[in-house]
Design a protein around this nucleic acid. Structure first.
Lengths: 231, 231, 231, 231
DNA sequence: AATGAATGAGGGTTCATTCAT
DNA sequence: GATGAATGAACCCTCATTCAT
């Protein structure tokens, strides 16, 4: 009924269309659940709705996930699969300026998470953290900490190379995290009800944020270079 | 716990314990509801729980609010009462540097909203906006727009006085909004489940954010003054 | 608040207006309850509504009646107070034709019960009998049986005087009862929702019914007299 | 219990016990609801009770009817399905005397409605009309009007053939309606609480009523024939 | 006596979960 | 495996009844 609407998560080759559907089921259910949990929250989402959106019956949902709560946990787990390893490597071999690295970091964050349905997880976690403390801890461990380390490494690189001047290294990463989280939150909450024209343009938003915060971090000596790149 | 936050409507002295309680009830219920809605979300909060936390029975809640949904709306309405008028005046007569104004703005935001239970509304709106579009619109109109205008005025003042250099005036205010919203969100979501020691120190966070973003906005000429103040 | 809207049931002279109100309370409550029970049924009538219509507060109702159910019983009891004794005497001394007696009986029934709010009791009993079997039994004993005896006496008189020819004396009284009950039922049920113009004209209805059933009961010999009176 | 009273929508044979039950459910629920609504009234009947009597759980009821009120409406609708068309034809081709027609009409009324559970609808409507004005209007349109027309046609036939003499043709039909309605009402109200032996014998009641009212309507010329039949 | 705020058992309705098919 | 009818615990809300004032 519903065409598989995104890249299926299970990669083994299926032998027939029928079998493919079968193997794709959990992924379709997770996709549907993600959308609905993000839109309405965990409690306000009905299991049957998830099943319907995934094109299966209510009973089938419980064939793959033992309870609504386990479905929720699976949704979170599935959508935060360690992208950071890969990113770490990317940044390890990056050879531009640190300012560019920050810009690239924000852009990649947007492209690979923010612009995809995975960005909903951020809202989901924010909204449901206190109802699912173990999920919150898991997220903290698996997403926030790696992200923080990644960004801190970038900033440290800037400092080490004399590109950045940063007063409080423990909190500086939040200057990048906060705007990105805000952007993703808005996309899934108020932004989703805003009338056309009131919507945030992500590219312009990221540019504006990067512009200002890099202005604030870049050492004055490095200033000209950075400012020039901005154009 | 809850300071009487506005002029009560009934002026005559309550004559009895009973009557005194009666006048306090709506406020107590709203406070309890705010806490629980923020903590668990609208759907996951049971009316009876709200009543219990307010120290009354289930039925009493419905004596004051015709439905759970109306209670929700009242909670939002009650907690966003136009503080902006007052703030506008405050800033109209402010006579320090614009950088100080930005810092003061963030500090006041934290002190008067972020640090109080009212900050929960931000999380509530973010979480429930799509389930209550009319509330979202109301919030957009009554909170976001005034806040945006207030901040934009501050930034414009900085630009006008040659203190700030800002490329994109339409998005610059978000450099202040995003970190503050992030701070409030965290306080009520992940921050609330974080182990001790992992918690954000709001003052330090604000200082760090202000530090960086003012660094990025301040015209280079004005730089020394601003930097000095920072100590 | 509500002016006492009908002849109060308690006849003792009250000394002051205030006291009069006080003594009239139960009667006003019974009147209000009768109206509402008849209109909506026992279960669908709220105690507060009764109190409000009687112009008192909810608590006051329970000052006079220990429960809603007792109120109901009082309403029935109060409105069936033996009118039959008086009627019996009236008919004992009646000296017209038996056909006239039947006509007079139906007319009096309408004037003294049907046209008054007391007629509602008939609908009430019909509707609620099975929920209140003891009330039903009481009504059977206090109203139906006396009425049946009264009517049977009238019919017997007609037979004894050679005016009526009746085959089944055990059921004949129902030829009078059924139309009258039907009339009162309609007034309080479908008749109450009918659009203007669709309403039964009681006088014409009674005339028509009496016309036909007396035609069927009157001995052929007595026919002329009866027919003439009919005009 | 309930004969399938119209062509079921699903024509394929039910393959399993489960499916068979499913098709029977609405009817079983309607039957249970009719009984209970008639016995206790709408408000005093609990949804769970209806479900229990139909042998299902509370939740199942709401699988078939979206609310108690819709169940009520379905009960009324289901039980007044136009029998009048068929009756009309029956009477169009009747070739006995008009007095016999009246007797037959009453008998058929009793056999096909009065003696069945459908007779409860009459009490239900009488009791609940004012709480459900749209149902009352529907009943007026679908039952009362057709019945009135049918009976009026019979009476008119009698008049046209010189068998009946009727003064007020607008009200005469009520001489048949009132006794029948009274009979059905009693069956479901006071009659249902009466001790054995106090019960109305429907056949004898109908005979008595027909006897008297036909006596009152039949033209004197036609009298002998009618009277003879009566034996 | 009168009030009306408060209570809490009860009823309508929803929905996660089960299980016969 | 897949289905969807059935369940019943849980929730929102009502309202008869109580009781402090």
């Amino acid at each position: 009924m519903t065409p598989d609407k995104s890249i299926p998560l299970h990669r083994r080759e299926p032998h027939s269309k029928r079998e493919r559907r079968k193997e794709a089921r959990p992924g379709e259910l997770l996709d549907a659940a993600l959308d609905l949990f993000v839109e309405k929250g965990f409690a306000a989402t009905r299991a049957e709705e998830v099943a319907a959106r995934a094109g299966v019956s209510k009973g089938t949902l419980f064939l793959y996930f033992p309870s609504k709560e386990e479905l929720f946990k699976a949704v979170v787990r599935e959508n935060i699969s360690g992208r950071f390893q890969e990113w770490n490597q990317e940044f390890d071999t990056f050879d531009g300026s640190s300012a560019d690295m920050v810009r690239y970091c924000m852009q990649v964050w947007w492209d690979r998470v923010g612009a995809t349905r995975a960005s909903g997880i951020t809202k989901l976690i924010m909204s449901e953290a206190r109802n699912f403390p173990d999920i919150a801890a898991f997220y903290q461990q698996e997403v926030i900490k790696p992200a923080q380390e990644l960004i801190r490494k970038i900033l440290q690189r800037g400092v080490d190379r004399g590109e950045f001047t940063i007063n409080d290294m423990d909190y500086a990463h939040l200057s990048i995290v906060a705007p990105m989280v805000y952007l993703m939150m808005m996309k899934h909450s108020l932004g989703a009800c805003a009338p056309r024209g009131h919507l945030l343009d992500p590219q312009r938003y990221i540019a504006s944020q990067a512009d200002i915060l890099l202005g604030g971090m870049c050492s004055r000596a490095a200033e000209k270079r950075t400012t020039r790149k901005r154009k």
